[in-house]
Amino acid sequence: MNSKNEILSRLRQRGSPAREDNAPQWEDKDLFADFPGPSDNLIDIFSHQLNKLSGDFHLVNNKEEMVKTLKSLLEDSEPEQCKAHKSPLIDELKMLGPEIRDYLTFIDGDEISSEEFERLEVGITGADCLIARTGSILLHTVSAGGRRLSVLPPTHIVIAEEKQIVPSLDEAFNTLDHDQDIWSYATIITGPSRTSDIEKQLVLGAHGPKKLIVLIIKS
């Protein structure tokens, strides 16, 4: 018998019979004390949570303002050290703001060597959705330019729209379910990279981004 069958057959021999035929169901709103209420403003909750986690939050009224904010954020870096994920929103920002165009060159993993990638300072990506309750960002390889752009550069900038904010995790997983078959990797980011491995003292920027900046356009 091969190993798989041997293991499975052991798991099938059991004393007591199976009990439940359906896994229990629940909703986040019944489970979590901090689930946003109907009168709560999701942007406020999201920004509050993100700030608590030492992430930076910027809310802008329109795309022109977004260009201005990006410019001020990127000013101190060299354009060659910044790369962006290809998305319709970033395309539009490039049209609107020629002065930041060079900072937003698109990335394709095959065109850049690992060494060059490792030297990048800023990665700019979109997101699938933002989770208000926990101040998290959910993104996957298709919505955010692969795996490395959001983790290898020391600064990660996320560009999103207000309507992408969902109250809690359950809804975030529902959005993921919709585009079942395109991505190989997704991640829920909650704050910049951190560690407490040394005497339980919190230090930011352990291996991933030291800085996490989220820019949101009002819908």
């Binding site: 990335i107 995790l169 395109i182 190989s184 991640t187 909650t190 951190r194």
Partner: peptide
């Protein structure tokens, strides 16, 4: 913690159309 910093969901190696992995 409310949620750990990174929770990654891995469904496979780099797929067609993905830029790395």
């Amino acid at each position: 913690q409310q949620l750990t910093g990174y929770n990654s969901i891995i469904r496979g190696p780099r797929q067609n159309g993905e830029s790395d992995g």
